[in-house]
Design a protein around this nucleic acid. Structure first.
Lengths: 250, 250
DNA sequence: CGCCTTCTTGAGATGACTCAATGGTGGTGG
DNA sequence: CCACCACCATTGAGTCATCTCAAGAAGGCG
């Protein structure tokens, strides 16, 4: 609908060298070859504003993206009009990859903040994969990682209480941000641009109930959520509520 | 625990030519090269009995498998002792792949019936991938497919009612079995070796509530579940309850 | 300054859970 | 061949987590 807030900023493959973290590792493998024929295989940097969609569920999956800056929520729509959040994408994440040509996005991607992404044509990625076995392995690793987060998510939605799910979401974001050096202040404080409604979409809860749980966590002295930020008062306790287990590999 | 019911049946790479459906397509790509050095890279066929585990969550992921015959349930354990089903694996499915060496299974695999699998060493798979770009693409496609089912699953657990989730599970299995020609009798009847408890584990429900929902579906004339089989009386209605959307690609 | 989005809180409804007991069914060993 | 046993399905009664509906408060942005 409002998918057209997407703005192409510049088309320069060299920009992709800036993609941080996973994506950086991902594409430096092919950077040399890749940059050689910049004419035929262009990548582009795009900017989009908060609340706009990078892509919609069901749209032809022509591009994949590396998130430069900002947060996205990947989600699926339910037929009753509600929305289920799948995962928050943070800077460095690689999203929207589709291994088959002619395929379609299995989920939508909503900008939670203003966002900058680096876009790749799927066809180009396929060609790159076919010529760089390392890249293929790395893409399977990224997929496996996302798969793992989905499995954990399924366990959470199927078995955990509202409080546990919310605690988990926060602890997990805390650690992902920590690894990226994107925490606030010295310590246990993180930027949190999600509305309570979005947090509810992620955790399978009503906005109203989400609010009550946040209130309870506050009154229990575990964490304080304010607009745009969360302060964790008692990280061990929050992790215990969440039944958070730190990721094994890497 | 009872992981040792796993029996090696024979070690002959040629057996893998029998792997049906997806796995067949998957491995025929490399069959020629692969079979050449059968000495160093052996695959083996294993048999395991109902209720035993092919692998456990958290165990070192040394092998990946193609399911020959029988059904498996992939699951994750919750710290309170309960279990969340992730997905049913049917003959032809490729499971347990881990792209990184030194990694660990993110889920367990429980035999719902007696099962025969074809095992591959992860290291061998990695070597094969590195030499066969096509294979790499196919593996990313398999992962993407599983990812998609996970996303659908998350939507179901987060947003759907108990009745919708159970209906969905049944319709989806119906179609997967139909594609494999493994339905019973002429028509709308399928083998169903899951206990109600397992169905509950898959759908995030108590066995008791699972039973009540099955009873309701029966009294509504939608489907009849008996031990080891389900008869669908009104497929369109079941699909409508489930909000089932047929898969797009393939 | 005023609107609009987001957050907050209350009251009541309900879907799913827990605990508990009974009834089937198939397998196994005597 | 029968009797028992283990596992699975069924049903009832009561509880609880989460939802719905509804209204009001609090910021931020134009």
């Amino acid at each position: 609908m409002q998918n057209n807030k997407l703005t192409e900023v510049r088309t320069s493959p060299t920009r992709c060298a800036e993609c941080p973290i996973r994506a950086k590792a991902l594409f430096q493998v092919v950077a040399d070859d890749y940059l050689q024929d910049a004419e035929s295989r262009r990548t582009a940097q795009y900017r989009l504003t908060s609340r706009s969609h990078l892509y919609q569920e069901g749209a032809p999956a022509t591009m994949a993206y590396t998130l430069f800056s900002g947060w996205l929520m990947l989600y699926r729509n339910h037929s009753d009009g509600s929305r289920q959040g799948l995962r928050i994408a943070l800077p460095g994440d690689f999203i929207g990859y589709a291994p088959l040509s002619e395929s379609v996005y299995s989920h939508g991607a909503l900008a939670i903040t203003d966002v900058t992404v680096c876009g790749f044509r799927q066809a180009d990625l396929h060609a790159m994969i076919d010529n760089h076995a390392d890249l293929a392995r790395q893409i399977t690793a990224i997929q496996a990682h996302y798969l793992h987060t989905c499995e954990v998510n399924i366990l959470g939605l199927g078995r955990k209480t509202a409080e546990q799910r919310i605690a988990y979401t926060v602890v997990e974001l805390y650690h992902r941000l920590e690894r990226r050096d994107q925490l606030l202040g010295g310590g246990h404080e993180l930027p949190f641009p999600l509305t309570q409604e979005m947090l509810g979409e992620l955790t399978g809860l009503t906005p109203v109930h989400t609010n009550r749980v946040l209130r309870k966590l506050r009154s229990d002295g575990v964490m304080i959520s304010e607009r745009q930020r969360i302060e964790i008062l008692d990280l061990p306790k929050l992790a215990e509520i969440a039944d958070y287990r730190p990721p094994v590999g890497s």
